[in-house]
Design a protein around this nucleic acid. Structure first.
Length: 422
RNA sequence: GUGGGUGUAGCUCAGUUGGUUAGAGCGCCGGAUUGUGGAUCCGGAGGUCGCGGGUUCGAAACCCGUCAUCCACCCCA
């Protein structure tokens, strides 16, 4: 019999790691709530066309990274590669635009992309994201960026950089595209093979190339910012002013081009050193056209998503185990009568709200005490045949080693006060 | 999809130009202490050397293939 193993790029989160995941998730929830966002829970799979339409048919995600399968009736379904598409779908489907207050949602959960795993990249990974609908106002952008920054900063993540760029409206990019293409064609010879292809396919991505030769070629290239309309420029200026106002530090990056088709105007990304090659912790932007693309009425929107695995990698040790664990009492029942009395003692303690554990493999007091020590229990309740005969149990303080009798008839009553925080 | 690194005990890793019974540390179990944990000492259990083939008198080591994993490219959170 061969052992069945987990799927490549899909990881278990073992009990040792879940406390700090909870810490991250709870922190993100708390901040999002404080900023007026409400949780939405959307399905893990959707019809494939939802993602193809929203993310962009020619993006890498849609072209080669989706987990797609057929439903029994032949409908093509896909495990969600990101959360925005599903959230917009729900927004449109439930006609949330009709509700007369800003619709601000957050979500968290697993996402799926079929890529080769590497540091900070899995096939099932987890994101926390927010979406703010209905406000075509720079302050909405600032609010979302501020929330992103606060979540990450509050977790104590080291050396974060917030980069921001203005992608303009689609018309601005259309105007810029031929200008950039012309420049790139002149310098075609010096570009890497990838970028030579990108000139026609997606010229903006050449700006984002990591190859040093490409970077030095694109450094003096005409910039998108020069082709932007006055409204796009002024909008972006107001976003930056808003960030200045509430003291969110940022740096402008004219090369920041996001990989999803639906972004316009403001785009941003928070990167960290020490993450390996995948250094983006979180990213987002404005996507004013998406709701309409998915059949809703024209609705401006802005949002972001952060990668939980990447946050977990960056989280300092001092932040990892902040969950306050209650005091636990170990019940050492051994011998014929002691074993039986141990079972009832465990249940009685638990019913009265006390965390109680035991290791039923241990048959000797020595073995029990060793387990109590390993479980770092503050107290051990010793229950051997002698104690049962006397109608008592021995309560041992594991640190001071002092121990005394407690009556079995009023066990939890006597133990409860001992477990209160001293 | 492409490239590179690594697969030996539960964990971290040694293992000489190919040579006899594959080791260490930590961990685990037991004893010293017949009902008292952590420290110490003593003892013990635990290995298809990733898998399959090949070369050889002989392979953990060399060759080929394969799988897993990690890292990087592409791209992204």
């Amino acid at each position: 019999m061969s052992v069945i193993k987990g799927i490549k790029g899909v990881k278990d989160l073992l009990p040792e790691e879940t406390p700090r995941w909870r810490f991250i998730e709870e922190s993100a929830r708390r901040w999002a709530t404080r900023y007026g966002f409400h949780e939405i829970r959307i399905p893990i799979f959707e019809v494939t066309t939802l993602f193809a339409r929203s993310i962009g048919a020619s993006t890498d995600i849609v072209e080669k990274e989706m987990y797609t399968f057929q439903d029994r009736d032949g409908t093509s379904l896909t495990l969600r590669p990101e959360g925005t598409a599903g959230t917009v779908r729900a927004y449109v489907e439930h006609n949330r635009a009709a509700i007369p207050v800003p619709q601000k949602y957050f979500y968290t959960g697993p996402m799926f992309r079929h890529e080769r795993p590497q540091a900070g990249r899995l096939r099932q990974f987890h994101q926390f994201g927010v979406e703010s609908y209905g406000m075509a106002d720079p302050r909405a952008d600032v609010e979302v960026i501020a929330l992103l920054w606060r979540i990450l900063h509050d977790l104590g993540l080291p050396s974060l950089t917030l980069e921001i760029n203005n992608l303009g409206q689609a018309a601005d990019r259309e105007a810029y595209r031929p200008i950039l293409v012309e420049y790139l064609k002149e310098h075609n010879a010096g570009l890497c093979g990838n970028c030579k292809h990108r000139i026609m396919a997606n010229p903006l991505r050449v700006l984002d190339c990591k190859v040093p030769e490409c970077r030095s070629i694109t450094e003096p290239a005409p910039r998108l910012s020069e082709s932007l309309s006055e409204t796009a420029r002024s909008y972006f200026a107001q976003v930056l002013a808003g960030l200045d106002l509430i003291k969110i530090p940022y740096s402008l990056n004219h090369r920041l081009v996001r990989g999803l088709d639906y972004y316009n105007l403001t785009t941003f990304e928070v990167t960290a050193t020490n993450l390996g090659a995948q250094n983006a912790v979180g990213a987002g932007g404005r996507y004013d056209g998406l709701v309409e693309t998915l059949g809703g009425t024209s609705t401006p929107a802005v949002g972001f998503a952060v990668g939980l695995e990447r946050i977990a990698m960056l989280l300092p040790d001092s932040q990892k185990s902040l969950s306050p664990h209650d005091k636990i009492i170990y019940v050492a029942g051994f011998g014929t009568q002691g074993s039986v009395a141990g079972v009832t003692a465990l249940e009685e303690l638990r019913l009265s709200g006390i965390s109680a554990v035991s290791d039923f493999r241990s048959t000797t007091l020595k073995a029990h005490l060793r387990q109590a020590d390993r479980l770092s229990c503050h107290f051990t309740l010793i229950l051997g045949d002698d104690e049962v005969t006397k109608g008592v149990a021995l309560l041992r303080n594991m640190e001071s080693k002092s121990q005394y009798d407690v009556l079995l008839s009023s066990l939890s009553h006597q133990i409860q006060p001992l477990l209160l925080p001293s």
